[in-house]
Amino acid sequence: MPLSFANPGIYKVKSINGGRTVSKRLTDMGLRIGSVLQVVSSDSFGPIIVQINSTRLALGKGIARKIIVEGAG
């Protein structure tokens, strides 16, 4: 499911669609395929907040739609 639809909870990143620039930037910031992340605040129409280890990231809805996740507990 796209991250933009995820309710608060723990998820695992399955794939990152979209351009190289976006996926490279996310990798550099610690969000990679296989990363386990916590959705802290969700909003299908606006930006969301996710936590990966000690990094707290704000992701715009455009990017959140391109990150595909699956539930992980």
């Binding site: 910031m29 990094t55 707290r56 990231l57 704000a58 992701l59 715009g60 455009g62």
Partner: peptide, 10 residues
């Protein structure tokens, strides 16, 4: 499209 929004929240 607007620039992709990715930002660290310190």
């Amino acid at each position: 499209e607007p620039a992709p929004f990715v930002m660290e929240l310190p």
